[in-house]
Design a protein around this nucleic acid. Structure first.
Lengths: 230, 230
DNA sequence: TGAGGTGTATGATATATATCATAAAAATAA
DNA sequence: TTATTTTTATGATATATATCATACACCTCA
C-alpha cells in the first residue's frame, strides 16, 4: 500500500459530501490517499485503530477470522463505502481485517481528525449513525439466517443481495466477481458445500456462472429459497 | 401494557442523561411511561415504527422470528437500555419483536420527538452512534461464532457474556434468569442440544444451575471453550 | 519454461446438530 | 381443586454439513 499523490474527486466519501463547507479545507489538508494492489491488507484484526478509510476505487472484503484458515466475510465494500468504522467505540483495535479484492485507492483520515469532524459536523454524525443503524439491521437478519436458514437458502439470499447491491455489469453478470471460497466465507459455509449448492442451482437453472462471474436466471425461484417467515 | 402515571427518576435513560438542560422540559412533556407484565409485547416484528423505548425497570428480550416457532434472541435488555432503536433508519418497521421477561416499566418517545432530540442534542446523537458501533461489533463477533464455533463454545461464551453484563445477584447466580428455551434461542441452537450441552457442563463442574438461575463455577475452563482464534 | 502456489472440482466418510417422540414436572389458569 | 399450558427431561433416529483425500487446471513469477 503506497501513497497516492493524485487525490480524489472530493465528492465520493461521506466526509467530503456531508461536512460544512467551512470544514472542507481542513478535510483537504488532513486527508491522505493510498493505492493498494490485489490482496493488500488495509488493516488487520487486532491492529490498533489509527484511522478511518473510505474506498475511492476498487473492491474490498472485510472479514473476521477463526482458528487460522477459517473466516467469515462480514461485508463487501466498493467505491464510496466506509471501511474501518468498526474500530470506533471500543477497544481501539480493529475487530476485522480489510483486504483488497482488486487494485484499489482509499481515502484515509486519522482517527483524531475524524472524531473532530464528527464533533463539528452534525450532518455527518447523523448519517454515520444511520449507517450504523442500517448495518446493524442487516447483520441481525444475516445472523438469524445463519442460525436457521439452510446453506442453499443463504446462498440464494447472498446472490440476490449482491445483485441488488452491485447490479449487473455490461455483460449481464453481477458486478462483483467472487471466488467460490469468498462466496463460502460470506455465507458462513465451507468451500465444498457452497460449491455443491452452487452447482445444484446451476443444474436447476436458477443461476449461470462464468468463472467468478455469476448471473441470476430465475430470480423468482431464488426468492422462494429465501422465504421470509411471515 | 398500560399507562403509568408515576413516571421515572429522570436520570435513567440516555435522553434524560445527555440532553441539554434547555431541552429537558420538552423531554418531560413528551415522555410517556408504560407498565407491562411478563410476556407483554412492546412491539412486534413488522409493526410500523412509532417510537423508541427505554427500559426503566425490568428485563426484555429482543428477538427475530423464523418459520413460526423458531426464533433468534438478538439481545437482552435491562434497566436503562434502549429498545426499539433498530427501527431507525430504514423501512420504518421494527425488524424485531420486544417481549417483557418480567414485569417492566418503560419510557417511550414518539419517533418525531426522538429525532428532533437527536438534531438538537449533539451529545445524545454521538452516544447513540457509539452505541450502535459497539452493538455492531458485538454482532459481528456473534455472527462469526455462529458460523464457526460449536454449540458448546457458544453456550460457554453466552454464559460468560451474561455474567459480565449482568453480574451476580445476592445468591451468587447470574442476575438474569433464563429458560432453557431462551438460552437456546440466544445461542442459535435447538432447545434439546442446548439442554444436553448445559447438562454436560454441569457434569464437568463448569456451571451450576438452580432452576432458571445459573452460576459459573469454573470460569477458566469456560474461557478455554470460547478460545479466540489468536 | 518450469515450479509452485491458488482456485476449481468431486467422491467417500464422519459427525455435530436437528428432528421426532414421549413423558414427567412445574407453573398458570379456571 | 382440577384442568391446561408451559417448561424440563431423555432417548432414538435422521440429515445437513463438515472433513478428508485427491486431482487437475490455471495463473504468475523467477
Amino acid at each position: 500500500m503506497k501513497k497516492n499523490k493524485q487525490g480524489c474527486d472530493r465528492q465520493t466519501c461521506l466526509v467530503c459530501r456531508l461536512c460544512l463547507k467551512e470544514w472542507l479545507p481542513a478535510v483537504q489538508t488532513q486527508k491522505k490517499h493510498f493505492d493498494c494492489k490485489k490482496g493488500d491488507v488495509l488493516f488487520r484484526e487486532g491492529d490498533p485503530v489509527t484511522g478511518i478509510y473510505f474506498l475511492y476505487k476498487g473492491k474490498v472484503k472485510v472479514h473476521k477470522h477463526w482458528d487460522d484458515g477459517k473466516e467469515l466475510i462480514v461485508r463487501f465494500a466498493r467505491e464510496g463505502d466506509i471501511v474501518g468504522h468498526r474500530g470506533i467505540g471500543t477497544d481501539m483495535v480493529y475487530p476485522v481485517t480489510a483486504t483488497a479484492l482488486e487494485p484499489a485507492t482509499v481515502c484515509y483520515f486519522e482517527l483524531d481528525f475524524f472524531n473532530a469532524s464528527l464533533k463539528v459536523n452534525h450532518e455527518l454524525l447523523y448519517e454515520l449513525m444511520l449507517f450504523y443503524a442500517r448495518e446493524l439491521q442487516e447483520f441481525e437478519k444475516r445472523m438469524r439466517n445463519l442460525a436457521h436458514m439452510p446453506v442453499k437458502g443463504r446462498l440464494a439470499n447472498a446472490l440476490l443481495t449482491l445483485k441488488e447491491k452491485f447490479g449487473y455489469d455490461k455483460d449481464g453478470f453481477i458486478a462483483f466477481p467472487l471466488s467460490r471460497q469468498d462466496l463460502a466465507s460470506y455465507i458462513g459455509a465451507t468451500y465444498e458445500t457452497t460449491f455443491r449448492m452452487l452447482n445444484a442451482m446451476i443444474e436447476e437453472n436458477l443461476v449461470a456462472v462464468s468463472g467468478r462471474y455469476i448471473t441470476l436466471t430465475n430470480e423468482e425461484k431464488l426468492h422462494l429459497l429465501r422465504k421470509e417467515p411471515f
